[in-house]
Design a protein around this nucleic acid. Structure first.
Lengths: 216, 216
DNA sequence: TAGATTGTTAATCGATTAACAATC
DNA sequence: TAGATTGTTAATCGATTAACAATC
């Protein structure tokens, strides 16, 4: 495998392959072909093969890829093997739901603590600490945290982002439905529910309209 | 405005413009130029103008677009003006967080009720009903629900999706980290946190590596 | 009128797909 | 060997960007 720069489109498909591979039953054969994966996921087989070529050191003709090593290769490429510590700002319902989600461990994500302007309690149901926002800076510095998760209301998102950046954070996972202005070296990943809803809404509108016309 | 088919890329940018426009202060002038929006959102101005041309009946040279009507045009295009009723499957933490989120009203989304194999309570904090899953079919039929939101564990996502489709649902917003197999006319919109995490993780890996090299 | 801004047509860029050669 | 599958090179497609004409 050569170290090539990877495009965002490829990058976003890798976790799809990963979950598919990990969900295969124990009883499945140790090898899997790009063809089989493509069929199962409803994708083009050349695309799958090309994507895998970016992270794997190759499959064997006629046999395919060794499932276990493919999983390892993708996980390693995505950096899921070394855990990333993160802090969460905004311990509302969504924030607490994310804090309690056990599945993040599979992605190497570890939410250390949450911070809130006005914490309702000092720990989540799972026992993770919830601190007043004033403690954020010291905490981030001492734990060398590089990632922040924003689950605050839209109107406080920008100031929370500014605060995180001042604490030395390099990447922000933003659940607030708003655009954030940040310096170029900071990565913002918007978990854009509005985007998803737009796609769903327009699809349904079209569907409804179609049905009406058919009913004529 | 002519009815053109819109690409998914444009479609996904529309809600970004919309939130930006809605968040402008009351005191802002009634007109806004594509140039100004592009600068504020860090996008290309031609792209903004082209996107707006898809939904608006045009801005005025030298002046720009009338902010209010632009908002209306986008909302209408996205179908946010007529509400979409939805049911939610899986009343866990994430499910309840979504049920309680007031902001969905802005997107024309109305979560009528949640369903769960084993409801802990019969209503959410906001008073929305939570029913046992057995009641789903009758409910969807009588309320003519077209959209389902999946917040169940990955291992139950496929069966939940099948159930929704059997109930006549046309679009599924899937929060479960798994690939769903559905008939072609059903739209699946994956709220893919794994995708976002992949982007964040790879960015941080690169950042860490870079720092190490600089430290040499 | 001059200049800012719009909308459109053409050029570029990147990503996907198709064709094919290599290999076990 | 034959055939399934891999990996790569070339062709296509779509989306973004650049150039420019139109307009208030």
């Amino acid at each position: 495998m050569e170290k090539k720069t990877i495009s965002k489109s490829v990058l976003k498909r890798l976790p799809v392959y990963l979950t598919y591979l990990k969900n295969l039953p124990e009883s499945a054969p140790p090898n899997i072909s790009a063809t089989a994966m493509a069929t199962a996921l409803g994708m083009g087989e050349v695309q799958v093969r090309k994507d895998l070529a970016m992270v794997s050191d190759g499959g064997r003709p006629k046999i395919g890829y060794l499932r276990e090593s493919l999983i390892d290769d993708i996980e390693q490429f995505l950096g899921y093997d070394n855990t990333t510590d993160a802090v969460l700002i905004g311990a509302g319902k969504l924030g607490q739901a994310l804090m309690g989600y056990q599945g993040f461990a599979d992605y190497g994500l570890n939410i250390l603590a949450a911070f809130d302007i006005n914490p309702k309690t000092d720990h989540s149901d799972e026992g993770k600490p919830i601190y007043p926002i004033e403690k954020l800076t010291a905490f981030c510095r001492s734990h060398k945290v590089l990632m922040g998760i924003l689950t605050v209301p839209a109107e406080h998102a920008q100031e929370a982002a500014d605060l995180l950046i001042a604490c030395g954070i390099k990447a922000i996972w933003n659940f607030a439905p708003t655009h954030l202005d940040v310096p170029p070296h900071i990565l913002i990943q918007n978990e854009n529910m509005a985007m998803s809803l737009a796609v769903l809404s327009v699809h349904l509108q079209a569907q409804i309209k179609e049905e009406k016309e058919n009913a004529k």
